[in-house]
Design a protein around this nucleic acid. Structure first.
Lengths: 344, 344
DNA sequence: AGCATTCTGACAGACGTCTGTCTTTTTCTT
DNA sequence: AAGAAAAAGACAGACGTCTGTCAGAATGCT
């Protein structure tokens, strides 16, 4: 019944514990034939090293760092809370997680911070990716030092980072498009995409997903030229109001990026029939807008789950185990299936 | 840096390790004032017992059993796979999980099986709940023996089981209703609910959720009398075709229970405009129907996640720790945001 | 055969906790 | 103040693994 121990393996292989250990931990100095016998015994018994006992003995603890954009509201604060919560829970499992602030929307500053990490500072870092040469350099350096890098939310430096944990943004855009299509029934409509900035990869991908799906409708749903609001409330207000008065027949809005507070504000004081609205990320604002019926759906990447997946993967990376993770699937929230506020 | 050990606590409290241990593990025979000092030291240092070392020392391993309905297709096979997968992963963490077959839809047989469990057979069991006196009795017995019982998918015996892990079915019904409403835009429509059997609690709840939401629409969406198909394909075919010809203006179908293969089959050979269709649980059949555009949305309870939550909770229950779990939120799948087939 | 080299085995101390036993100290009882 | 009872301390062996050291055995080479 009990799982076999390395002693059992040694006995089965007809060697001493020391030899089995030398094989298991690749210490070398073992004759080829003994190596084979031990490996066979491991196979036969289905031996799996007790990682907990091993970690105990090694005094190993996993040290992970998350570099997250500052900001006390919106998506990144939700993400931060998710990390804090996991940090708390994982503390009991020899995982120590620290969060480090970085200026938002500043890939160079992030890269500079990453460059100051020493080889023994941590086992793995989690960062929010963005397109930037300096970031790629910094990630490559970490990788060369043997520190794993997990990209969160938005991918970057795919050849240097260890893993990306986040949604596929084309899929997210397609999901939004498909919901808009569903909500239009068999009618026609005009969809206005709103985005933060076009030079952000994830925004481009989402827009592309939307475009794909709308194109499949054979012109029934027309995609209007996107407006770019640079995450600034005034820009959002000005450009959105301009768009709405220029094209009154807008039937749907897909807000691709952040800055939804201003959007919600405008929706609230809109008279008459409002368009369908889909936006990203469940935050306190989007939640209350959903509850109030000001918007129709939120596409969320479930930061809580995302962080849990990331940390699980970080452990595997630190242990040099094969990393296999489920994709993070964009979730659709409507008014009815919102989670409890204190949760994910 | 290092987490404090019980030795540290003992030193801080000015007592011996033995005494600190007696307090921590409630062995008794310690003077009140020493108890207090130790407790204060635990507080002050933020001591958390190293469960892994403790389990190692205690030779403790968690033994959980899942009693799942037989059946090699449909939802329960997905659930079973999820359990098997978790069992595999958790094996490394001193968790041994076994799956036991029970006849489907037979609460008495399940109860009889549960009655044969002895006090030392396992720490916790997971079962699929259903309304049944005999089940309640069996669960209460397990509880009295100190074996935790986690209800999966469908709740039962709330006063005797340890925990329910599954979706809120009223919420699921509301979600379906809300999607149907969204898809009807501002138009009117008639919704046909299809259910397995009305005496199943979760089906009643889902139907109720639907009814609630449709009622909030002020008659724009009319709910037709539900048809009851008892999970039998022929019944589904006969009753559904009867309903469709009696009420041609059906614009939406909400399939509340299982037996969706027959439904999909009928949809496939339906000519003209098909109604909107929402059904439950992502299985190979519903997935391919979604991909083929035969149905519009699937409401899923994410069995993989559900099982993970359940096992986590079982550990906490076995350790007598406070159990806090996130609700399982019904997820909306549309064609665009389906996960990879081999995943959740 | 003698010697160097490689391989193997034995052992001990650690990691943090559990548990049992035994002794010593403190406190209470009369 | 003496004895009983309660409380505290000391200690050892375990769990499964890691790591280092050292001695002994097997093998290779001349």
């Amino acid at each position: 019944m009990r799982n076999p121990t390395l002693h059992d393996v040694a006995r089965a292989a007809g060697v001493s514990y020391s030899t089995a250990d030398r094989v298991l931990n690749r210490r070398g100095g073992v004759a080829e034939k003994s190596v084979l016998r031990v490996q066979r015994a491991i196979q036969d018994l289905g031996y799996q090293r007790d990682i907990q006992a091993a970690n105990l003995s090694r005094r190993r603890s996993y040290v992970f760092r998350f570099y997250l954009p500052q900001g006390d509201h919106g998506f990144f604060s939700v993400l931060r809370q998710a990390v804090e919560r996991q940090a708390q829970q994982q503390q009991a499992d020899r995982v120590s997680i620290s969060i480090h602030d970085v200026p938002p929307l500043d890939a160079d500053a992030l890269a500079a911070t990453l460059l100051r990490i020493g080889p023994d500072d941590c086992d793995c870092v989690g960062v929010v990716g963005s397109d930037s040469e300096s970031l790629i350099t910094a990630v490559r350096r970490l990788n060369d030092m043997g520190i794993g890098v997990v990209m969160l939310v938005s991918d970057a430096a795919p050849e240097a980072r260890s893993l990306y944990v986040g949604i596929n943004n084309v899929v997210a855009g397609r999901t939004a498009g498909s919901l808009l299509r569903l909500a239009h029934g068999r009618g026609t409509g005009r969809i206005l995409p709103i985005l933060g900035k076009l030079d952000s990869r994830d925004h481009r991908d989402r827009l592309w997903g939307l475009t794909e799906v709308l194109a499949e409708q054979g012109g029934r749903l027309q995609q209007l030229p996107p407006i770019e609001v640079l995450d600034r409330p005034e820009t959002m207000r000005d450009k959105l109001e301009a768009a709405l008065s220029a094209t009154p027949e807008i039937t749907g809005i897909y807000s691709i990026g952040a800055g939804n507070r201003a959007l919600i504000h405008i929706l609230r004081r809109m008279s008459g029939q409002r368009p369908l609205v889909i936006l990203h990320e469940l935050t306190s604002h989007s939640r209350s807008a959903l509850e109030a019926g000001l918007i129709d759906a939120v596409i969320d990447q479930k930061p809580q789950e995302e962080v849990a997946v990331a940390i699980g993967a970080m452990k595997a990376i630190a242990d040099n185990l094969p990393v296999s993770v489920n994709d993070v699937i964009p979730t659709i929230y409507i008014k009815e299936n919102l989670p409890e506020p204190n949760q994910s």
